[in-house]
Amino acid sequence: MTMIPGPEKAYCRGLTALKEKDYAAADREFDACGAAYGKSGGFRIMAVATKLLARVQREKMMILKTTHAIEEAVSHGKETIVCRQGEQEETR
């Protein structure tokens, strides 16, 4: 079906993903062709940097989600306290 061998096709898809800054997709494609290109120093640098960057971005998302969740919890807590104080004041 194709004139390009499977590993080379995966490498091309990986490069396209890199150009589109989709590092997670590029990492998956580079993993798929790693066996065929692993001996190339240039490929290894690119593949390792991509893997690390994809991981770093996942970590960043986790930190941002956690931070957001904490901020929401704190904010919710304050609102509750204010509301209760208001109720108390109204009660008073």
Binding site: G42, I45, M46, L53, K60, I63, L64, T67
Partner: peptide, 20 residues
């Protein structure tokens, strides 16, 4: 932690862009 991660992200992005 977030700042450290962001610095690493910037450097890795720069490395990949320069390779490309």
């Amino acid at each position: 932690d977030l700042k450290t991660i962001e610095r690493l992200e910037t450097r890795l992005t720069h490395l990949i862009e320069s390779q490309l």
